[in-house]
Design a protein around this nucleic acid. Structure first.
Lengths: 239, 239
DNA sequence: CGATGGGTTGAGCACGATCAATGTAGGTGG
DNA sequence: CCACCTACATTGATCGTGCTCAACCCATCG
């Protein structure tokens, strides 16, 4: 039930049996969340961190003029707000993009882990640091990649992240985001997202009907995006 | 000599004397770095983390076509690559924007801290998490703020960050970045950065000669940027 | 002095935004 | 079963922010 939770950290380094047990105990309860509901609100001071078991979630900020920017996409196995344990007050909200099931981990349990399980603590730190690394890649995409390159880069990232949690079949995956949500993720208008996707289809790099994305030409997609997977730290090693 | 190092963490929570001593001992040596030199290179696997004592540094990525995106600006008191302790291989480089003096903290010492000083470990985690929070604000600026708003937001952020380490006098500070570097930070062209700055001057929101930035109308600058300082976590509290 | 590293200005252009309409598939109620 | 509704995808036309290219200016320094 907290299998995804454990699998996530095992991506970074091997866990001992006792570490796995500690993690099992840390998840106090599960909840089902409806599509579009907010998991956390801006300004909250959560006393629990949220771990995503199934479904997709997004962190975002909204400006006065109504413009929204999604700053992170979360897939099953991700900590959605592990940082709230350290940073205390939320400067952004988190929304369920699809119906989700989540696990709650009390900050108290996380604190306990930092007091007694240094290795586990470091792996939680890795999770936060990889999050930041993804943010940096998004910054590069936003600032210096064209809309096409940016979109290609996001698709590369999602393929690898979803593959890491077993949610791909070959080079295809389910991406339950509307083009409007994609626009808010990429910093583009809905219309332009549509045109970029059509371009990728026309070039026979991908296929995309409904929620199903198929990468037809991975080398070329990676080439367009200038994608280097290093930032995802997907190799397990001693930490 | 590692006063800045300590001051930095004291922003997040109070430190005990023994914690201060541990930090003092963690900095093994200091180095002077010339302007424009790389502190860390992409692909490196550093065995020490770098702490900035004086000067400005920038993390950045360069694309094949030569475009560069700066993903973080570091001011005295910042850890430049604390995350390299957890993430192992650098997916970006770090450059000295001005001559810098840096302190080196061996990963071994950081590891030791995680094994024996949980509270200090959490504060190091806060530093990584705040870094990520800054990245998220930059994402919002890149994706959904105009060039003017984005620039204003960066100036607001820098004023507060520099004030936190005592590098402001009233509402002014030294910002030793060329307009080209600013462009690579904001994701804009040099020419457009120049025009945006002129706009801010014309509106009498700021003054900017050479390296000296003066915020003449803080409320208005903050208003333009829609700036909310929450993400900087500048209030000390138990963590 | 001339060279170098910024900062500033102007003209034209392009990428992506905006506005508005149309298409389409599923889902609901009469 | 069809009429309608809703959510989302698609298309076209026009507009504007910010880019590019190319000068030119100015201060500093050798």
């Amino acid at each position: 039930m907290s299998a995804a939770f454990i699998r996530k950290l095992e991506q970074y380094d091997h866990l001992s049996n006792s570490e796995r047990e500690v993690l099992e105990r840390a998840v106090v309860r599960q909840r089902a969340i409806g599509k579009g509901e907010e998991l956390v609100r801006e300004g909250d001071r959560p006393s629990e961190s949220i771990f995503l078991i199934t479904g997709f979630a997004a962190r975002y900020n909204v400006l006065r003029n109504g413009k929204r920017q999604i700053t992170a996409l979360h897939v099953p196995g991700d900590f959605v707000d592990l940082h709230s344990f350290l940073v205390k007050v939320m400067d952004h909200a988190v929304m369920a993009v699809t119906p989700c099931t989540i696990g709650m981990v009390p900050h108290e349990a996380l604190r306990e882990i930092t007091e007694t399980h240094p290795h586990l603590t470091r792996l939680l730190g890795v999770s936060i640091a990889v999050d930041a690394a993804i943010h940096r890649q998004w910054l590069v995409s936003m600032g210096r990649r064209s809309a096409l390159e940016h979109t290609a880069h996001l698709l590369c990232e999602l393929l690898l992240r979803l593959r890491a949690v077993g949610l791909t079949t070959d080079d295809s995956f389910q991406l339950p985001l509307t083009q409007a949500e994609l626009g808010d993720t990429l910093g583009l208008s809905t219309v332009h997202v549509n045109r970029v996707i059509q371009e990728l289809r026309k070039e026979e790099v991908i296929t995309w009907h409904g929620d199903t994305v198929v990468i037809k030409d991975w080398p070329r997609l990676q080439g367009i995006a200038e994608f280097d997977p290093t930032f995802l730290s997907l190799k397990a090693e001693p930490r």
